[in-house]
């Protein structure tokens, strides 16, 4: 109550109050106007992006008819699913290991775990290029492994940066939880697996899902690392679109962009709804 009263005194009075409101509104316009324009122009009949000549769905038709784009979308989906599953498992285990246990060398592991988050895309890309360049032959000696295709290299490098992001999100969740529930379960003769399956996992699930969403987003967003490691046969859609739009603007790219944008926004909105649903359930 008192906080609410004080909060209102924090809002400036007179002209500055309206300036603040106008500014905030303008920043939101800045956030969304480019996206709206992009969406609107993807329905433009004209082949010239800036001139509106009428409504048309033809660019989406072109998109559906373009085999190269379809193929690259499938590659992205495959890489995204595989790298997300692997990094969610490894990242969650790493988070548990750091938050719930104490062991020798833990500090060093913790520090290394942060590096992939802060490292710039370009450095990561260079690392992967040089690494696979030097060691691809060594890997290919292992039976059943063939890195020449590029798909495996994409998955391997996406996991390399995603483990850390997943573990950070899961750790944040774990840190806010009381370990006494787990201890109580163990006291009641639950096996280690039962404790994890019945007590720990349900509690950290929002963190695991949040980490998975982050991994999916980062995998689909990545351009720089992917363009360094992808081979001729395995171009993910981000790299394909990047190559297209370096050449210039076209309504076809607008249509492809809108599809990608809608997909990524749907993902966020779905996760927000899911989060709200799980947290309100907890409230009951």
């Amino acid at each position: 109550m008192g906080k609410g009263v004080a909060r209102s005194t924090a809002e400036p009075m007179g002209y500055s109050r309206w300036l603040l409101r106008a500014h905030s509104l303008l920043v939101f316009v800045f956030f969304y106007a480019p996206i709206v324009v992009l969406v609107v122009y993807s329905f433009n009949k004209s082949a010239v992006v800036g001139k509106w000549t009428g409504f048309s769905l033809s660019w989406y038709g072109d998109f559906l008819a373009n085999d190269n784009i379809q193929r690259s979308i499938w590659i992205s989906v495959k890489v995204c699913v595989a790298s997300t599953v692997i990094s969610v498992v490894l990242g969650t285990l790493a988070a548990l290991s750091i938050e719930r246990f104490r062991w020798w060398g833990q500090k060093a592991f913790d520090a290394v775990l942060y590096l992939p988050i802060i490292i710039p895309d370009v450095t990561m890309a260079v690392m992967m290029l040089v690494f696979f360049g030097e060691t691809a032959e060594l890997f290919n000696v292992i039976p059943g492994v063939d890195l020449t295709d590029g798909l495996e290299k994409l998955v391997l490098s996406h996991v390399a940066f995603n483990i850390s992001f997943v573990s950070v999100v899961v750790r944040a969740r774990l840190a806010g939880l009381d370990a006494s529930m787990e201890e109580a379960a163990a006291d009641l003769y639950a096996s280690r697996w039962q404790v994890f399956r019945r007590v720990t996992l349900p509690q950290i699930m929002p963190g695991v899902l949040g980490g998975a969403l982050l991994a999916v987003t980062l995998s689909l967003d990545d351009v720089v690392v992917s363009s360094f490691v992808s081979g001729v046969g395995a171009t993910p859609v981000s790299v394909y679109v990047f190559g297209m739009l370096r050449k210039g603007v076209s309504p076809l790219i607008n249509a492809v962009s809108v599809v990608i944008l809608v997909a990524s926004m749907a993902l966020v909105v779905a996760s927000l709804v899911l989060e709200r649903a799980t947290s309100s359930q907890k409230g009951k």
Binding site: P34, I35, V37, L38, Y41, V49, T217, L220, D221, V223, S238, V241, F242, L245, V249, I253, N254, S257, I260, L261, S264, M265, L267, V268
Partner: peptide, 13 residues
């Protein structure tokens, strides 16, 4: 959370 590449491209347009 939306695709960074596409958001940059929107400014290109």
């Amino acid at each position: 959370w939306s695709n960074f590449l596409i958001r940059t491209y929107a400014w290109r347009v």
